[in-house]
Design a protein around this nucleic acid. Structure first.
Lengths: 127, 127
DNA sequence: CAAGTGTACTATGGTATATAATACAGTTAG
DNA sequence: CTAACTGTATTATATACCATAGTACACTTG
């Protein structure tokens, strides 16, 4: 059984969309540390994607320390670990910059952004 | 003369990086509404990119209403226009979602994000 | 008319994405 | 031990995107 959902959009690589869905599932507590993650073949079958694409998803998630492989058995959801200062600096500068520029170009106010952020943070924050 | 700067990074399409730099220049007031925008050939020469890539930049910016073409003359920076409710909904849900998921997976706190957002908004907000 | 605009087109090379079909080593249930 | 399951690697094909090069055309300005 698959315990997360993906509604594929056109124009974004499938493997990226699946990766994001998994991250979202983990962040919201839908997938918990220690949970067994679907096998490559099961992922392929259930999401109707190529086994190689499913394998790409797993290898990326392992590289990002979100999954851990138990050889011969399968993969397991890892515990979330705090970002290093470097990583924090990265996301909090690069990502915020992109975000702010896009908002300002559409004349969206800081308050609107803060509200949206606050709302979304709590809404999906049960995990 | 080129009135904005691009430091190219590997792995991100050149035309995307240039587009973002232009947006940033507009948002920060470095490029003001009514300013003449460099011609395709000048952009190509100054940034050392292919004319076709420069043309791609211009056409994208025109499509996003950030530049306006005066046929036979050149292009001019447009006035920023407020987003429609649909556009706001788009950026404030999709973009915030991506952002929050990435932050939470690195166990970055809401306060850290809010602070970074607030800091960056004011820092680059002289325009 | 000459030189500058944006734009369109063909062509080539490199890379990324998604698919298909095998194959192999390790682990586990029966 | 065997069968069935794990992750992983390989080769191959088709498509799309990205960046480059070169040429051409209609338009406007000095």
């Amino acid at each position: 059984m698959i315990n997360f959902f993906v509604k594929f959009k056109y124009g974004i690589p499938i493997y990226e969309q699946v990766i994001f869905s998994v991250k979202k599932a983990i962040v919201t507590g839908q997938l918990k540390p220690g949970d067994r993650f679907p096998s490559v073949r099961e992922l392929s079958r259930e999401l109707r994607i190529n086994p190689n694409t499913a394998q790409k998803v797993v290898s990326h998630l392992v590289k990002e320390n979100l999954l851990k492989i138990e050889p011969g058995i399968g993969s397991v959801v890892s515990q979330l670990s705090s970002a290093t200062d470097m990583q924090k600096k990265g996301i909090l500068e690069n990502e915020v910059e992109k975000f702010v520029v896009e908002a300002k170009r559409l004349l969206i106010t800081k308050q609107e952004v803060m509200d949206a952020l606050d709302r979304y943070w709590n809404e999906k924050g049960k995990g």
